[in-house]
Simulated assay, not measured.
Amino acid sequence: MQRKKTTIILIIIILSIFSTFSDKFKEHSIKDGDNLYRIARQYNIPVTELCKVNNINQNSVLKKGAVLKVPNTTTSSALQKYTVQKGDNLFRIGLKYNITVDKLCKINAFDESVNLYPGKIIQVPANDDDKKTIYKSSDTVIHPVKKENSVRPVVVQSYFYHLMQKGETLYQLSKKYKTEIRVIQAANNLTEKTVLMPGLRLKIPQGSTRKFIDYSLPLAGRVVPYVKSHYRGVVVFSDKENAVVTSVDDGVVSYIDMRSGYGLIVFIKHANGLVSTYSGFSEIYLKKDMVVKSGDPIGKPGVISKQSDPAILFSLQDGSRALSFDMAAGKFYK
């Protein structure tokens, strides 16, 4: 009899522990293409919290089939009313309250085609802190980047040709074209003993300075210039499955939106005054005002136009001016 009582008590304790666990956590089975940032966004929690409860770090390798504990953070009581404003859409409201469009639709029992007219009342999570992030970037701060560290002046040589006339010398040419004798010699493989015959065709270097921005592209792959009346940048096509777009420098997320023809857009403002722009995502991992470091994941590239490979539109802005891209150097320049 005593043994039966003990067994019953143990069962009750075990069930109580299990119930407490299920109340606090749910389980996520790792699938192909999963990463910590995507899982954190799916469940609307910081990636640092996801790492903490699973005793892993942000660089841990996730194996397919492995199971992660995911904290339960959303309850029906943690909701508040929100009045739709002019210009609102599901995506923007989701960003503001750190919730996915799918979850926003679910808690309001409507779908993505809902008419969000100004004044409409909907339910949103109770936390209205606009600066709450989808995940924290290791609680880092921006390391100021000096302009001279990221802008690399490079002399790009171009040439025109001069036909030697009778009696002309290299000294005369150097004065005429405002260059140095040794520069003309080097460009034409001349020595002190070379005889300059009339009719000899000489290359005259014309140096122009391009200040290259010493940034790597945010996505590895094939680069195609993309210049339109309203846009100047490049398209980067990736041939890798599950490719991730990364930030080109330390900075702060200054703008996130969805625009027709461009898809999901992210702007990151950097300490050197430049703004890097990324568009065409299929999904993003960031939130406005988030601090990022160079190499931090931004999101997953989408499919641009009818191209089969995932791609991203990328540009660098210096104030209101879009910088040009040098295909040979693989860099933007001022």
Rank of each mutant, 00 (worst) to 15 (best):
S113H: 10
Y262M: 12
A187R: 01
C105N: 10
K287P: 14
V67K: 15
F325K: 01
K147P: 07
T246R: 13
I107P: 05
T133P: 11
D130F: 05
I107S: 06
K63E: 15
P218M: 04
V145I: 14
T73F: 02
N54M: 05
R210F: 11
T100Y: 03
D250M: 06
S113E: 12
L219C: 06
Q157C: 04
V101R: 03
E112G: 04
N127E: 14
F110A: 10
D257P: 01
M164G: 04
Y37F: 15
Y262V: 02
V303D: 05
D111K: 09
I56G: 08
V223W: 02
L217C: 08
I17T: 06
V145S: 14
V156Q: 08
V253Y: 05
D289S: 12
S19H: 10
A311G: 11
Q317I: 05
R222T: 14
T73A: 04
V141S: 12
L264F: 10
S320D: 14
N272F: 04
A328P: 00
S260K: 09
I298M: 12
E148T: 12
K4C: 09
Y82R: 03
N54G: 06
L10D: 07
Y97P: 07
A311W: 03
N149F: 05
S229D: 13
D239V: 00
F281G: 05
E241N: 03
K203I: 02
K26V: 08
V252P: 06
Y231P: 04
K131Q: 13
I121G: 05
I13D: 05
Y97N: 07
D214R: 04
K131D: 14
G330D: 07
I304D: 03
A243W: 00
S320L: 15
I284G: 12
Y285A: 09
V236I: 14
V101K: 02
S305L: 15
T133F: 07
Y43L: 07
R210P: 08
Q123K: 12
D34H: 01
Y159M: 04
P118Q: 03
K26L: 07
V266W: 03
S315V: 06
Y82H: 05
I204C: 02
I13Y: 02
L95I: 08
S276V: 06
L68E: 07
N108H: 07
V183L: 06
K287H: 15
T20H: 09
E241A: 02
L313Q: 06
S320I: 09
M290A: 15
S320H: 03
Y135V: 04
N98W: 04
F212S: 06
S16I: 10
K120E: 10
D23W: 09
R41Q: 11
S150W: 09
M197T: 14
V195C: 01
D111L: 04
D309S: 12
I284Q: 09
